[in-house]
């Protein structure tokens, strides 16, 4: 399937126009939308994650690849929805209350979307009640909390506690990340998982989604 090769390459190279064109061509050639995701976008973004981990790619290159992946997903997503295809999992993601630094969260959100998850991105400075509302109304099974500042990390605990108080703690898995966050902190606040990298967050989400 030469069009999927082109799409794979377009995502790796961060060429969103080529990615959109290759996606249209693949669909026109009869490639199933789910095949485009699982057979091309997921491995392409996995490769982007690998290149980032080994410091061949940096944030700009990752964002370019994410933009190309999103250009493809924008075409594929309605087709998946129409066919009733379920994602790997549904993740509500945001930076916690008081934290406006969102680039790390954006990278993780893109990697999760590229990993086959449906991502409900609430943006930055998100109050616990908004996480709860989104997780409830969108039937999410994962919640991903991001913080860049040590001073906003307590909002992670507040959010975890709010899910507990709302009686939803058993229904969602909560993962945390961000520069000052540690596994020790994740354990202390009762989160289900911690990752120190965007690629690791996808692997973590995959593990948590099947538990």
């Amino acid at each position: 399937m030469p069009d999927l090769d082109k799409l794979h390459q377009a995502v790796i190279e961060g060429d969103w126009k080529a990615a959109a064109a290759a996606t249209q061509a693949a669909i026109a050639a009869g490639v199933a939308p789910l095949t485009i995701v699982t057979g091309c976008l997921v491995p392409a973004m996995d490769e982007v994650g690998r290149l980032f981990e080994c410091e061949e790619y940096f944030v700009p290159e990752m964002l370019l690849s994410a933009r190309a992946m999103k250009a493809s997903m924008a075409i594929v997503r309605p087709l998946l929805a129409a066919a009733g295809t379920e994602p790997v999992g549904r993740v509500v993601i945001g930076t916690v209350k008081g934290d406006l630094h969102d680039i790390g969260k954006n990278l993780v959100a893109s990697m999760l979307e590229g990993g086959g998850f449906e991502v409900i991105d609430l943006g930055a400075d998100v109050a616990p009640e908004r996480f709860i509302e989104a997780a409830t109304t969108r039937n999410a099974n994962l919640v991903a909390l991001s913080a860049l500042l040590t001073v906003t990390m307590p909002s992670m605990k507040t959010t975890v506690d709010a899910f507990q108080s709302a009686g939803l703690r058993e229904k969602v898995k909560i993962m945390v990340g961000g520069a000052p966050v540690t596994q020790q902190y994740a354990d202390a606040i009762g989160a289900d998982g911690y990752s120190e990298s965007a690629g690791g967050a996808v692997a973590l989400a995959r593990r948590l989604a099947v538990v």
Binding site: G98, L100, D102, L149
Partner: peptide
């Protein structure tokens, strides 16, 4: 710029 009572102000990127 968004101000917080007891942490640094932050530029609103949006």
């Amino acid at each position: 710029v968004e101000w917080f009572d007891n942490q640094p102000p932050a530029i609103v990127e949006s």
